[in-house]
Design a protein around this nucleic acid. Structure first.
Length: 961
RNA sequence: GCCGGUGUGGCGGAAUUGGUAGACGCGCUGGAUUCAAAAUCCAGUUCCCGCAAGGGAGUGGGGGUUCGAUUCCCCCCGCCGGUACCA
């Protein structure tokens, strides 16, 4: 029988499903001797366009690994679900009126069908959907826990708000070191005298989930605020809409409290350096001093943060952020008009403009002066755009001699510049390098910069001018979205506006039905229009914002451990069994968003004693993107015989020619596709236009001259009906005719072939283009592999004869290679090893069970359907339900022992001969034998052999002079 | 700018601790089969010189360490990703 993937794949998919082959149990303690292994994929957002060919890359890799681990004796958790709340479904609802729940459910069905098509070993009985009330009940529950806890900086962990309340009433807050929004000091009496409202406002400063007015990223087009990681280059990551700064009352999560732990614990995880670097960057730790500057004729002080206290003798002015609270108070009468004009200018500028015009220096003098605490000099105070309100203290001491921005500012406003560091000893050092010798700095003169920094920090603390301080770029995470399709906050407000968490018994707070999904007026969520829902309880109103996309995804990996639990987010028994994710596979786009929030939530749950591990994801692999190949033709306009012709050109920018058209061409019309000689001819362009008439204009009517349809000239001027095409690698997109739908590939080649081909493309972590033709190689391999089990008449026929030593060597070489390569996630070389083994066995006409049976087990993680069919035919099903229950083959080293070794023999490092020598030959024997070779004597004749290097089983190198 | 990654045939890529550079696959060339095509099979395929035997060059460029470097070190260049008034 010929290899017919469709037939066998459908058969075994049905069998797996019926027999619940991939169901995974949570064993009772002591019940299951097998060690656990948790393999997780980042769950997808079920978008309307379905799964594309790049998605499955990571899923296939993790599926292979999961199956391999299972066959190696592990109890493997390998679940899948959907990140199902999100903006696209809501925007689709606004456009079409289709309820997000409906479209999301449809998309999920489609995703499921596509995933099933690829033969994954997911345990679907553990499926989670973040939009399901039985799931988001626990998202809400975790939010309440965050609301009910604060972060104690001494204990370096989260503690209950009730503890804090108790301590306040006994001792005030002077001795409490906790992460807080605003710093203030009160005594126990003061606390006890406060109204409930005042107390609640103070507690808000401490809660890990808290509400405050802050400048947020407001996106008018999306009608919602966005988190920092959802904004890229001043526009929204989704949709690319402009984002502006706006002060709003918002929920936030105090992730900054965990900054130090998030940074330090990166040491404990096995992630790529690139990813760790991204997280480190995002956290952005810097050490320095927080210090106060007095102001001339004022009681106020300006608090600044600096990493370079050593340069303070060069601080000749100060700059505040335009939003700084002291701006108004410090502005003198005569400067009011100028300052107000500047503030108008700043407010009118979008985030985008501010970012794109970074180089331009703007600012205005407030009229006030600060006192440099070390020189006692009066230095002018400015406001300027380049100082950001939400980093440090929103104010800086400016040292124009050692900071490019301060320098530019000082130059523009003609402020004195005092050199304080002599860098002449460090010719390569830049302005920001902490190198040099102090000058013009009184007691620091002559000191090296690092020593001067330390000396200043000590003095600042001793003289009570400030304190050592660690600052982070990481900001608290904005947690409110003015949207419908997200988790409602389990929060209600009383008449005074005090926020209360709902009781756990009341959860989930379900999202009510709506007909109209447009945002409500005043930048509010559409939920604000749903009055009966809003005022569900006497005297209380609900929060109308919903939670952001990262809420549900910050803990889903824990839910899989016990996905159907209605009493807890997951039972302690389940969590203590599965513990953490051993292997996590997903894209880099979540490097600072999801991966940071999940770690934060996990650490919080760890503080609460609810999870046993400090980090949720032990090892992480980022799969690369699968790109498309885009074939373009370039047509250049040229006047010939009074007509304009389009002329093919390989150099689009030659001779300053700008009047050309760059047309993407469907690969079906390209000859020699993928090579540098690929071309289209006129006939195929005509066919192309028949097929896509809208392209006729693009091809024949760019420019406005006359032209001859179908007359082309090649690059060298000769008449030709060929047009060279140019390939580029880029995004898969409909407009480039290069989108590959996995379903189509599976339809034609089968899912085993698709799986193996995606792996064969290259290293999982690398981005690479999809090459439509390359798949034939893998398809051919699978046919040949299948053919090993069948005779010339197409009958299944294997032999029980004992396999030869050589055949066993082929098998065990493959086992060794494939085991090692799976362990290091090198799946492309695994496929290659299968090809080598199968080619060699085919040459030997080997059909011995002794070789083929282990080979079937070996390929089972990669091509599960094919393996299952062959396993069944070999009779393996008599002992196991499925090949997945069989043990993954082990290497028997005895078959890998060689009698002889082929040695390359080099003269002065250049290979000159190859010879076989016994593998147990001594170094001396090898040397003698090598020197005796005819091919070698030719090179040594008349020369002195100075040295012979013999590396047993590797090579021999002869040095002659 | 800063941080990280990466650079190997016509193409995707392999070379795991410094030890035969180019595994495996695509593409291409030639042959077999066929009325023909597809498919399949066989052989070849880094580049240059040469009928061949053989020789030379070669892993972005330059230098270094070494008997020996794709691999280690220094400098430079290109590409990809992240980030950017972060004080």
């Amino acid at each position: 029988m010929d290899y017919n993937p469709r037939e066998i794949e459908n058969k075994w998919k049905a069998y797996w499903q019926e027999n619940r082959i991939y169901k995974v149990d949570n064993p009772k303690p002591g019940q299951n001797e097998r060690p656990k292994f948790y393999v997780l994929d980042m769950f997808p957002y079920p978008s309307g366009s379905g799964l594309h060919v790049g998605h499955p890359l990571g899923y296939i890799a993790s599926d292979i690994f999961a199956r391999y681990k299972k066959m190696s004796g592990y109890n493997v958790l390998h679940p899948m679900g959907y990140d199902a709340f999100g903006l696209p479904a809501e925007q689709y609802a606004i456009q079409t009126g289709v309820h997000p729940a409906v479209s999301t459910e449809e998309n999920i069905k489609r995703y499921r069908r596509q995933l099933d098509n690829l033969g994954f070993s997911f345990d679907w009985e553990r499926e989670v959907k973040t939009c399901d009330p039985s799931y988001y009940k626990w998202t809400q529950w975790i939010f309440i826990q965050l609301f009910e806890h604060y972060f104690d900086n001494e204990a370096q962990k989260a503690l209950p708000i009730s503890d804090l309340r108790r301590r306040f009433s006994h001792e005030g807050n002077a001795r409490i070191k906790a992460a807080s929004t605003q710093e203030m000091v009160f005594s126990a009496e003061e606390w006890n005298d406060m109204s409930a409202k005042e107390q609640s406002e103070i507690l808000m400063n401490y809660r890990l989930a808290y509400r405050k007015t802050s400048y947020v990223n407001w996106c008018e087009a999306l009608g919602t605020v966005l988190a920092n990681d959802e904004v890229k280059d001043g526009v929204s990551e989704r949709g690319g809409h402009p984002v502006e700064r706006k002060a709003m009352l918002q929920w936030s999560l105090r992730i900054t409290a965990y900054a130090e732990r998030l940074l330090n614990d990166l040491k404990r995880v096995d992630w790529s350096d690139a990813l760790k670097a991204m997280q480190r960057n995002w956290i952005g730790r810097s050490e320095g001093a927080q210090m106060f500057f007095d102001i001339k004729n004022s009681e106020e002080q300006i608090e600044i943060f600096t990493t370079r206290p050593d340069t303070i003798f060069g601080a000749t002015f100060m700059v505040l952020a335009p939003e700084h609270p002291l701006v108004d108070a410090l502005t003198t009468e005569d400067r009011k008009a100028a300052v107000s004009e500047y503030l108008d200018y700043v407010n009118a500028r979008s985030e985008r403009e501010r970012m794109s015009e970074v180089k331009e220096v703007t600012g205005v003098f407030l009229g006030a002066y600060a006192i440099n605490p070390f020189t006692q000099a009066q230095i002018p105070i400015y406001i300027g755009e380049y100082v950001l309100m939400d980093y440090g203290t929103g104010a800086i001491m400016a040292v124009p001699s050692d900071d490019e921005r301060d320098h530019a500012f000082a130059t523009k406003f003609q402020i004195p510049i005092i050199d304080v560091i002599d860098k002449s000893q460090y010719p390569g050092a830049g302005m920001h390098d902490k190198l040099g010798t102090m000058i013009n700095s009184e007691f620091l003169d002559g000191m090296e910069v690092p020593d001067a920094i330390e000396e200043m920090l000590t003095r600042i603390e001793r003289e009570d001018l400030g304190v050592r301080k660690v600052n982070y770029k990481l900001r608290d995470a904005n947690y409110s979205r003015q949207r419908y399709w997200g988790e409602p906050f389990p929060i209600k407000y009383d008449a005074e506006g005090i926020a209360y968490a709902m009781d756990i018994e009341e959860l989930p707070l379900e999202l009510p039905d709506l007909e109209d999904f447009k945002p409500a007026s005043g930048g509010k969520s559409p939920l604000a229009r749903k009055e009966e829902w809003l005022k569900a309880e006497e005297g209380f109103i609900r929060e109308t914002d919903t939670m952001p996309g990262f809420a549900g995804s910050s803990w889903y990996f824990l839910r899989y451990m016990d996905a159907r639990n209605n009493e807890e987010f997951a039972s302690q028994e389940a969590i203590n069994y599965w513990r953490d994710v051993d292997l996590y596979v997903g894209g880099t786009e979540h490097a600072v968003g999801h991966l940071m929030y999940s770690r934060f939530w996990h650490k919080f749950l760890y503080d609460k004693g609810l999870v046993p591990t400090v980090e949720p994801f032990k090892k992480l692999i980022n799969q690369g993107m699968i790109q498309g190949v885009i074939e373009f033709i370039y047509l250049m306009k040229e006047k010939l015989d009074g007509h304009h012709h389009f002329v093919c050109t390989s150099l689009t920018k030659q001779r300053g020619v700008t009047d050309f058209a760059k047309i993407p061409i469907h690969v079906d019309f390209v000859k020699n596709y993928g090579s540098d000689k690929s071309y289209v001819n006129i006939d195929s362009i005509k066919r192309f236009i028949d097929w896509r008439p809208e392209y006729e204009n693009a091809i024949f009517e760019c420019g406005n001259g006359l032209y001859h349809k179908g007359t082309f000239k090649s690059n060298n001027g000769a008449e030709d009906n060929h047009l060279l095409t140019h390939s580029e690698t880029g995004k898969m997109s409909k407009r480039y005719f290069n989108v590959i739908n996995p379903d189509d590939v599976v339809e034609r080649y089968g899912s085993d072939c698709f799986r193996m081909y995606e792996m064969f493309l290259g290293p999982v972590e690398q981005s690479k283009p999809w090459d439509t033709k390359g798949i034939n190689g893998v398809a051919g391999f699978l046919r040949k592999f299948w053919g090993l089990f069948f005779n010339k008449d197409g009958q299944f026929e294997v032999s029980e004869e004992e396999a030869s030593k050589e055949e066993m060597k082929i098998l065990h070489t493959a086992i060794k290679k494939i085991r090692e390569d799976i362990e290091r996630f090198s799946f492309n070389t695994c496929v290659s090893a299968f090809m080598v083994a199968s080619n060699e066995l085919r040459k030997m006409n080997c059909n011995k069970t002794e070789v083929l049976e282990p080979l079937v087990k070996l390929i089972a993680p990669f091509a599960p359907h094919l393996a299952e069919e062959l396993w069944f035919r070999l009779g393996g099903m008599d002992t196991t339900r499925t090949v997945q229950d069989a043990a993954f083959p082990k290497v028997d080293e005895q078959y890998l022992v060689e009698d002889s070794v082929t040695y390359p023999i080099s003269i002065n490092g250049k290979k000159r001969a190859i010879a076989d020598f016994p593998s147990d030959a001594s170094k001396e024997d090898l040397e003698t034998a090598a020197l005796a070779l005819e091919d070698i004597q030719k090179w040594t004749d008349g020369k002195t052999v100075r040295k012979v290097i013999v590396v047993p089983k590797r090579m021999i190198n002869i040095v002659v002079g």
